[in-house]
Amino acid sequence: MSTHSITIAGKTYGSRLLVGSGKYKDFAENAAAAEASGAEIVTVAIRRVNLGQDAGAPNLLDFIRPERYTLLPNTAGCYTAEDAIRTCRLARELLDGHRLVKLEVLGDPKTLYPDITATLEATKVLVKEGFEVMVYCTDDPIQCKRLEELGCVAVMPLAAPIGSGLGIQNRYNILSIVENAKVPIIVDAGVGTASDAAIAMELGCDGVLMNTAIAEAKNPLLMASAMRHAIIAGREAFLAGRMPRRRYASASSPLDGVIG
């Protein structure tokens, strides 16, 4: 088992942290945060060009360069399997045959919770079409297993709603999901600060994907660096194996030879 690298769909990445590219002040800040995070996979969204406004405007991909990062196009904003599948096909064309995608089919704009029925439906089609599907889903051990069985290359349960920063809400579910998985489990959504990322890794997750926790920090570059360290620390703590919890104290200094 590798300490700090992660293998997804046969490709090995040096960092277990995956980052988004939304909500930044500008592309330069986004690029600097991605660099500081150490991430090698960066998510992007697929959207209509703004006619009449995009001519000559700076482009995200000039800053988050496909030669430098593995781009992970997402289906954010899709509420049906059909729209998500269409978005993935467009992403594949846009990125010259790139097959790795982040599938998310949302159920409602207030919670941005995944619509699992539609997610399962879209997964079947995308896997059949040769996509390597990293799937955003609920922290439900049964549905996570189903998605793995359908051929997803990584299963990415939420820790809390997208952009909420509430942290890992159901550690025992995440633990069950990790214990039952044969593909990488990546916590996607809900992380608010470095300790949340460390907890996910201490639970045995293979990685964490985050956007808002870095982009909305007062100092995104410093938070990106904090997240890089949290992922490393959490991973090492998981591999080291934590001490048991005890209700009462257990002295660290010998009891023999105390004066008096």
């Binding site: 939304g22 697929i46 995009d54 992403a91």
Partner: peptide
């Protein structure tokens, strides 16, 4: 016609 590009997203 639909014309799309990559933009920032999480």
């Amino acid at each position: 016609i639909e014309i799309v590009k990559a933009i920032g997203g999480g």
